[in-house]
């Protein structure tokens, strides 16, 4: 048993799985390298190697089955506390049981991963709709603050949908962005340069949208609770239609 650290990426996590198995020292806790967390004993560090990560991923996909592997990946992206250990435990159990691990749907080693993976997919689906782009200097820019690490799950969708545009989807909380120019996207650390403001034309479009949003509601059926149930307040910050009216 040992404490392991890695660089925080999914590839890094896969290398950690491989290294800990090879060393015969299964993790009892997993942390991020260089996070300054205090450890009782010096932790073991798994270095990230793209090729090793790919090979480990291939082996896992075959042995655990693709749905189990993918579910672990989604849970890894979630905001679950100790998500690394949860995914490790789930994969570990599936190493012996294979895909029938999912029959133990109510087992504490399985259920949290299922729930976390569902939460990630739910949040992704929400943002497919709730992401709002603003045109700034010919680039469509969409800031958002998701709970899970959604960039790689959103980029594919928007690169087919807005395939001829340049766009940036910016995860403000994590300080990184998916950046796209026709046919290619990548994820990188990002912060918006200062002093950039949307154009007048852009303001006009936002106003049209607000106008529409207001006109489409049937007043005699007003139901703010139902609205919040589908579109919780935490998402309002980046929605033009929910901007408080200007004084």
């Amino acid at each position: 048993m040992a404490t392991w650290v890695y660089d925080g990426s999914f590839n890094g996590f896969l290398c950690l799985l491989f290294e800990s198995a090879r060393a015969g020292e299964p993790p009892e806790a997993i942390g991020h390298a260089g996070s300054g967390q205090p450890f009782l004993w010096p932790p073991k560090e798994a270095r990230t190697d793209e090729l090793l990560a790919k090979q480990t991923g291939d082996v896992l996909r075959r042995r655990l089955s693709a749905p189990v592997f993918t579910r672990g990946y989604y849970a890894f992206l979630s905001a679950l506390k100790e998500r690394e250990m949860s995914v490790y435990t789930y994969y570990n159990l599936a190493w012996t049981l294979g895909k029938s691990v999912d029959r133990l749907l109510t087992d504490p080693r399985v259920l949290p991963v299922h729930e976390a993976s569902r939460a990630v997919l739910r949040e992704r689906h929400r943002f497919l709709g709730l992401l709002r782009f603003t045109e700034i200097g010919g680039v469509l820019y969409a800031p958002f603050e998701p709970e899970a690490d959604l960039l790689q799950l959103l980029a594919g969708h928007f690169s087919t949908r807005l395939g001829n545009e340049k766009w940036i989807i910016h995860d403000l909380g994590r300080g990184k962005a998916a950046i796209y120019a026709p046919r290619l996207w990548r994820i990188a650390d990002f912060s918006l340069p200062e002093g950039i403001a949307p154009s007048r034309r852009e303001e006009a479009f936002r106003d049209l949208w607000k106008e529409y949003f207001h006109s489409i509601a049937v007043r005699s059926r007003e139901n703010p609770r139902l609205q919040r149930q589908f579109m919780p307040k935490k998402y309002w910050k980046h929605l033009p239609e929910k901007e408080p009216p200007a004084e």
Partner: peptide, 29 residues
């Protein structure tokens, strides 16, 4: 469906919810 601008999604996507709690997916006009 896939075009130069846009594609469709099998399950549909809601983009907002109006004050009456109904989903806004299409520009209904």
């Amino acid at each position: 469906r896939r075009g130069a601008v846009g594609n469709t999604s099998l399950g549909g996507i809601c983009h907002s919810w109006s004050d009456d709690g109904r989903c806004i997916s299409l520009l209904k006009i």
